[in-house]
């Protein structure tokens, strides 16, 4: 019984939140990795692309709520998601046309594109804050829990509760769907194969008659979808605050690099690795240890390795270790 309690506590506070967070990071990292693999630069604007997409989703959610459209018990934001993806795609394609295409034509070095993306990041950043403000926005509605802690206790008669939030389930299901569609697309369709070919060997792809502008167009469309979905899911699960999305850039890049930049499978693995490490290290283990250890060893402190304020240090540390010992990432990077 003690052990069961420990498992429930662990699931409630560590495993389930980490799975949801990991799915969000994985989706974000997939966007970064696609841009790196196909367009060959590190896109620092990705976090703010997510913020922009989420902002559009929030604005439409509010509008839907005001005219009384809802898909309860699911959050209205899911209804706004497709519109947000279209708007974000328009923004990315516009940016590509106005800014990035110039540098592509020049065949600029990746490091120059990186700096350019930094500039784009600041512009998006300002744009989002200008439109929706810097404050915290909550926009999740519909049923909050699939099973709340109290219901769980009542149902099972145990002392510890296990809460599963609707947003967590939606996050995981959406992530699985999106990843399945993406992999099917990359591996089974002509367009996907052209994208892989382009990532594999750009010169050869060009000489094989693959139109680079078309590959770029599809890449941005996919990236817009991934970023908007990842951002909206994160916002639903927690809340939306532009600065937090800017900060998300670090764990997302860490995930993409740990998995091997340019490798979609690696991005997913990296996302979960980072998420689990972050939650594991910043979680106060006192309760779990109380259930598992004999009474005389019961800890008196919180047993927390790192305060939650420092959670970004975790991704940073992992990033450092991976870059030192396995620079291409866990999965072989730089190929799709």
């Amino acid at each position: 019984m003690e052990f069961l309690h420990a498992i429930i506590v662990l699931s409630n506070f560590v495993v389930i939140p980490a799975i949801a967070y990991g799915s969000q990071l994985a989706l974000g990292a997939l966007g970064v990795t696609l841009v790196y693999g196909i367009l060959r630069f590190s896109n620092f604007a990705h976090g703010d692309t997510m913020a922009f997409g989420t902002m559009v989703a929030i604005l439409f959610t509010w509008w839907f709520q005001s005219i009384g459209v809802s898909i309860a018990p699911l959050p209205t934001a899911l209804l706004a998601l497709p519109i947000a993806i279209v708007v974000t795609a328009a923004l990315l394609l516009g940016t590509d046309r106005v800014v990035l295409r110039f540098y592509r034509k020049q065949k600029s070095a990746p490091v120059i594109l990186l700096i350019v993306s930094l500039g784009i990041m600041f512009v998006y950043n300002g744009l989002v804050r200008f439109i929706i403000g810097v404050g915290d926005q909550r926009f999740s509605d519909g049923a909050r829990f699939i099973i709340s802690a109290r219901d769980f206790k009542k149902l099972t008669g145990l002392d510890e509760g296990l809460a599963i939030k609707t947003t967590q389930v939606i996050t995981v299901i959406t992530a699985i769907l999106v990843v399945a569609i993406l992999f099917w697309f990359l591996n089974r369709t002509r367009t996907g194969k052209s994208m892989r070919a382009f990532s594999d060997n750009e010169d050869l792809a060009l000489l094989s008659g693959i139109n680079p502008e078309r590959v770029v167009l599809y890449t941005w469309l996919i990236v817009a979808a991934l970023a908007t979905i990842a951002g909206t899911l994160y916002g639903l699960d927690k809340s939306f605050k532009p600065f937090v999305y800017f900060q998300l850039l670090l764990p997302i890049f860490a995930a993409a690099i740990v998995g091997g930049l340019g490798n979609p499978l690696g991005a997913i693995a990296g996302g979960f690795l980072i998420a689990f490490s972050e939650v594991f290290i910043t979680y106060a283990w006192k309760k779990v240890l109380m259930y598992t250890l004999p009474e005389q060893f019961a800890p008196s402190g919180l047993m927390q390795l790192l305060a939650t304020e420092y959670k970004f240090a975790v991704s940073f540390a992992i990033l450092l270790v991976v870059l030192l010992f396995k620079p291409t990432g866990l999965f072989k990077g730089k190929s799709l």
Partner: peptide
């Protein structure tokens, strides 16, 4: 098979 372009499956 990558080579022949303008294949039917190349548009979204």
């Amino acid at each position: 098979m990558m080579v022949p372009s303008n294949q039917f499956g190349e548009t979204l």
